[in-house]
Amino acid sequence: MFILIKNADIYAPEPLGISSLLISHDKIAWLGKNFPAEATLPDLEIIDAAGKILIPGIVDGHVHVIGGGGEGGFATRTSELVLSDMVKGGVTTVVGLLGTDDVTRSTGALIAKTNAIRAEGMSAWAMTGSYQLPVKSLCGGVRDDIALLEPVIGVGEVALSDHRSSQPTFEEFMRLAAAARVGGMLSGKAGVVNVHLGDAPSGLDYLFRAAETEIPPSQFIPTHMNRNPELFKEACRYGAMGGYVDLTTSTTPQFLEEGEVECGRALAELLAAGVPAERISFSSDGQGSMPAFDAAGNLTGLTIGRVTSIFETMRSTVKNYDLPLETMVRVVSTTAADHCKLPGKGHIKEGYDADLILLEADGLGLNTLFARGRKMMSGGRPLVKGTFE
């Protein structure tokens, strides 16, 4: 079965203008202006995408795919990610991880869910570890997990500057980064360290110190960098000196009232500060709990992050901050795919996976979604559900 998408305004992420592409099974088989075999290729479905924009599927690098939370007791453990949420949010690839709870949740369960997402037609990878050090590994160590477990591309989210972290020393943190780096080298993976940043005044201290060592800034994915104004100021400085900045799109009115920097504004300010889009990403913190604590550290409220928040934030950012669509595509897809070395992801190129979104040119509404060549949304209507939905 072949699918020819014609006359689309393609952002790959770089703008290609009005072009066409051919999907063969799960890959982009051809990309150009006039497909030469349109009249002769058998079993060819043709989609006329005139008046629509084609971009790569969203890559969400921070999702609690087996649920998160638990900070308010067992009843506050959040639910697993479901396929229909990915489809509704234009997300074709996720990187799953554990957060606070590595007691009732495990890396083994995370890898099982990663494989389940793949079996349902989407793409997924995982991180070993959690907020805590030492890491509860499956193969005897972080280096071993990354090198030997195919879906595992790094470690995290390791908590720093947060009352829920294990309060690691700088030396412990750097030994973890070194192990992840070597595990990545041995297996041809990114070997990244996903770093959860909390609200404590220590902020990015460890990452600024790490920048003075032989471990390069590209080894780290510091996330939640827009969670308060002070941390965001440090994020601008860290990004300008070569670091990577991940912004969290899931939010609440309370978080914004308390000083969280809205993602669109954060992106505009980072770009103005000289941080390139190639080092900025949006992630959702999907299915993670979003707890609110008082000054004494007591839980006062709880809601859930959603993978759909990235697409919603992309649309509002283009509208409110007049940023180029090419920039937005990099931030929601290409940067995370490249930094995490996810093969075939984040670009529209021949030989890459057919993870594609067709948007309405007027308003950027989500019209059609392909994941690994399979049509999962058409006319704005999801065509698939998960196994137990």
Rank of each mutant, 00 (worst) to 15 (best):
N320C: 05
E71C: 11
A211V: 13
A190T: 04
G184N: 08
M225H: 04
G73S: 05
H25D: 13
F170D: 11
E120D: 08
D338I: 10
E258L: 15
R372C: 15
D285G: 12
A211Q: 13
V192M: 14
A177W: 09
T387I: 13
I146Y: 09
L149S: 03
G264A: 03
G259A: 12
E157H: 01
Q132I: 04
V158Y: 11
T128A: 07
S250C: 08
H196A: 01
V94Q: 07
I46N: 06
R315V: 14
K136W: 03
A235N: 11
G286E: 06
F370K: 09
F370T: 06
L186V: 08
P201N: 01
R372M: 08
N367K: 14
G129L: 04
E38M: 10
T107L: 01
F220W: 02
L231S: 02
R77W: 00
T327S: 12
S283C: 11
R77A: 12
H224I: 01
V245G: 00
G96Y: 10
E278S: 15
Y206E: 09
E360R: 10
V94M: 10
T100E: 08
H163Q: 06
G380C: 06
A371D: 00
S316Y: 11
G17Q: 00
S137R: 08
A240P: 04
P13G: 02
P134C: 01
N115K: 14
G90K: 13
A159F: 10
A354W: 08
S106T: 13
G32C: 04
A190Q: 08
V329M: 01
G344W: 03
D362S: 13
T308L: 03
H64T: 11
L358M: 07
L41Y: 07
H25M: 07
E150Q: 15
L204P: 05
V331A: 09
D362H: 12
N228F: 10
D144Y: 03
L31P: 03
S250H: 09
G379A: 02
T313K: 00
L44M: 08
C263H: 06
K349F: 04
Q132N: 02
E230Y: 09
G32I: 01
G188Y: 02
H62C: 07
G286Q: 06
V329I: 12
A179K: 15
L383A: 12
T335M: 12
Y321M: 02
V158W: 09
G386V: 06
A179T: 07
Q167A: 14
L323E: 06
K375A: 10
C139H: 05
R143D: 02
D285I: 11
K345V: 11
D144P: 04
A336E: 07
Q132V: 10
R237E: 12
A126Q: 08
N34W: 00
D362W: 07
T248R: 05
H62A: 08
V331T: 06
C139R: 14
A200Q: 14
G99W: 05
V307N: 05
L364G: 02
E257L: 15
Q167P: 04
D102Q: 15
I215N: 02
L176R: 12
T368K: 01
C236P: 00
S218Q: 08
L4N: 05
N228T: 00
T327W: 11
L138Y: 00
Q132D: 01
I5K: 10
D85A: 15
E234A: 14
M122F: 15
S309L: 05
S218T: 12
L247D: 13
S202Q: 13
V142L: 04
G363K: 06
R265W: 13
F370W: 15
T223P: 01
